[in-house]
């Protein structure tokens, strides 16, 4: 199998001198294509920081991140934006949909950035809505959707650009148990059908149960890396 994510000696500290906090301490992991990986650990263990560094949202103090063979440290700001747009899908704990756009428009937005033509955009929006089981709700704005529905739209948005990797930061944290399970089933289904790589940071046992791999972080270090 091909590694789609490779981190080497990844370090990240916050603050300075007396207030310095080490969020990640020489983290090296490889994640293969199609893995359904959960990064777990207590609060402050560095899960979200690792996810942000993998996604190129933050810069490490040391070490490197290779995504699909490309070292993101060598990319300019615009190249990194383009890389994220074309290769990475993000799902956030707080959904983070654009409130003035409808569900359809939120999904369409990223394809617009990619320069996908209007007909293709419409077609893919319909597919994505069907995939997350939100047909008929595409014209609703986020405020008129439940939390679970909003997170489904966020999943559809993340999938719309046909990325290689989906990075999901506590995606079920704000959802009730039933909705969380339902959403996880959708993501697991996508993972299996499309061989798309998912990396979660989570405390949620439901995700841990379904993950094919668990990476345990503690105090910024990999404590345990287990494949099921």
């Amino acid at each position: 199998m091909t590694n789609v994510i490779e981190t080497r000696d990844l370090c990240r500290t916050f603050g300075s001198e007396e207030t310095e906090v080490t969020a990640l301490d020489h983290v090296s992991i490889d994640i293969e294509e199609g893995e359904f990986t959960a990064i777990i650990g207590p609060s402050g263990s560095g899960k979200t920081t690792l996810l942000h560094l993998i996604g190129g949202l933050d810069e490490p103090n040391g070490g490197s991140v290779m995504l699909s063979g490309s070292n993101i440290a060598n990319m300019s700001g615009n190249e990194l934006s383009d890389f994220r747009r074309d290769h990475i899908g993000f799902i956030f704990q707080a959904y983070n949909l654009i409130p003035v756009l409808s569900a359809e428009e939120n999904i369409e937005y990223i394809m617009l950035l990619q320069g996908v033509n209007a007909a293709e955009r419409k077609k893919r929006v319909r597919e994505m809505l069907a995939m997350v089981e939100l047909e008929g709700l595409g014209d609703r704005r986020p405020a008129h959707l439940s939390g679970g529905q909003q997170q489904r739209v966020a999943v559809a948005r993340a999938m719309a650009s046909n990325p290689d990797i989906i990075l999901a930061d506590e995606p079920t944290a704000n959802l009730d148990s039933k909705t969380g399970i339902s959403l996880l089933e959708v993501m697991r289904d996508l993972n299996q059908k499309r061989n798309m790589t998912f990396v979660f940071s989570t405390h949620d046992e439901k995700i841990m149960e379904r993950a094919t791999r668990l990476i345990h972080l503690r105090d910024g270090k990999v404590e345990l890396d287990e494949r099921k």
């Binding site: 934006s81 383009d82 747009r85 990223i110």
Partner: peptide
């Protein structure tokens, strides 16, 4: 922040 995260360029 979200817009930039999902690939919107500064321009």
């Amino acid at each position: 922040g979200v817009a930039k995260a999902i690939g919107t360029t500064p321009w």
